[in-house]
Write a protein that binds this DNA or RNA. Structure first.
Ligand SMILES: [Zn+2]
Ligand SMILES: [Zn+2]
Ligand SMILES: [Zn+2]
Ligand SMILES: [Zn+2]
Lengths: 173, 173
DNA sequence: TTTTTTGGTGTTATACTGTAACAGTATGGA
DNA sequence: TCCATACTGTTACAGTATAACACCAAAAAA
C-alpha cells in the first residue's frame, strides 16, 4: 500500500461528521441527472423522487419506508413501486443496498463505479459510505477519522463461478 | 485450465475446486468441538446438528432450509429453532451469514477470528470463503485462481459511531 | 400507416425472512 | 428449598421481496 498522504479528505466518511448536506444532495442529484441523460436511461418521476427521498439523509432506509414516502407523495402504494425504483437506481449505481440492514442508501460517489464500503452503526443505524479502496487497513483509518469503532466486518463479491461461466458461454444457449 | 501450478493453496477458495470434502467436515467439526469445550459453551444436540447440516456442502443454506432439515431430523419445526441455533453458531464464529443471499454457511476457518470474504456465484449460489486478507486485490487473485469472475463486490463494517459510543460510555446509563 | 415490440406502470396475491413474547424444563448454586 | 440461569417449545406476528398479469404509451419495424 502506498503512503496515502491525503491532503484533502474528500470521500472520507463525511456522513458521520458535520457537513453541508445540501451540498451532498445537489452534487449527487446533478450527477445522476447528467449520467442518466448521457446513458439514455429513463429517469422517470417515480425513480427521481425515490432518489430524492433517499438523499434526504445519510441513514439507510428500508424499502417499505421508501414505499410509505412514495405513497404519501402520490406514487402508488404497492411494494413493486418501491422495488422497481430501487432496482433501477441500483443498476445505475445511484443507490446501494446495505445488506446488513436490508436497507438502501444513495451513493455518495456516483461519478465512479466502485466497490462500496460502509461503516454501519449497530445502535443508531447511521451509515457512512467511504470512497477509499476498501481494504481493512484503509477502512480502519477512515473509521478512526470518523470516531467509529469497527466491531466486525465482511466482504462479499458476486459474480460467476467457473462452471456457470462455461454454461453462459455455451453456443447452445 | 490455468496452469496455476498449485503446490498447496490452503486457504484459497477451495470450495470451488475439487477437494476431499470429508476432510472439510472432520476438520471443522473437530475444531468446533474443541473450541466449544474450551470456551465452556453449551454445544447442544440441536446446535451441533445444525452445524453438521450446514457442513454438508459449501452452498449457502437459507434459514428455512435449515429449519426443514432440522424438523425432518426431529428437532422441531418452528422458526426460532433454526434462528436460535444460527445465532449461537454465529456468536461462536462457526457459521457466517452471507448477507447477499440471506443464507448461512459453515465457516471454513473457525480456528481464527477474521473478516470473512466470500465469492458468491449469482447463478448457482455456490459460496467460497477465502481466508486471505480481504483486500480487493487479494480477492481478485483468489477469484482468478478459482476461475471465478467477480462482477461486483462490497464491504460492510459494523460497529459504533462516535455518538453512540459516547452514550454507551456514559455513567448515567 | 399499420403493426409489433419494448419498457414502464398498476394491481393482486403470495412467498420468504426474521423476531417478540411467554410458558415449560433442566441444572446448579445459595 | 428457593432462586437464577440457560435452553427449549410454541404461537403469533412483523418485515422483506417477487411472481404474474393487465394496461398503456412510445419507439421501431413492416
Ligand atoms: Zn450529507
Ligand atoms: Zn457508492
Ligand atoms: Zn469442502
Ligand atoms: Zn470464516
Amino acid at each position: 500500500m502506498v503512503a496515502t498522504r491525503q491532503t484533502e479528505r474528500t470521500g472520507a466518511a463525511e456522513a458521520m461528521r458535520p457537513h453541508d448536506h445540501g451540498d451532498c444532495i445537489r452534487r449527487v442529484l446533478d450527477e445522476a441527472e447528467r449520467r442518466a441523460s448521457e446513458d439514455r436511461v429513463n429517469f422517470t418521476p417515480v425513480r427521481r423522487h425515490a432518489l430524492e427521498i433517499l438523499l434526504e439523509s445519510h441513514a439507510a432506509m428500508p424499502a417499505y419506508g421508501l414505499l410509505k414516502r412514495l405513497d404519501e407523495d402520490g406514487f402508488g402504494s404497492q411494494p413493486p413501486v418501491a422495488y422497481r425504483a430501487l432496482d433501477f437506481l441500483m443498476e445505475q449505481g445511484f443507490v446501494h443496498k446495505v445488506e446488513r440492514l436490508n436497507a438502501f442508501v444513495a451513493c455518495m460517489y456516483p461519478h465512479e463505479t466502485h466497490t462500496p464500503a460502509f461503516l454501519i452503526c449497530r445502535n443508531c443505524r447511521s451509515v457512512a459510505e467511504t470512497c477509499v479502496a476498501p481494504t481493512p487497513a484503509a477502512l480502519r483509518q477512515e473509521a478512526r477519522a470518523a470516531g467509529f469503532a469497527i466491531e466486525r466486518s465482511m466482504m462479499e463479491a458476486e459474480g460467476l463461478c467457473r462452471d456457470c461461466a462455461r454454461e453462459e458461454d455455451a453456443p447452445c444457449d
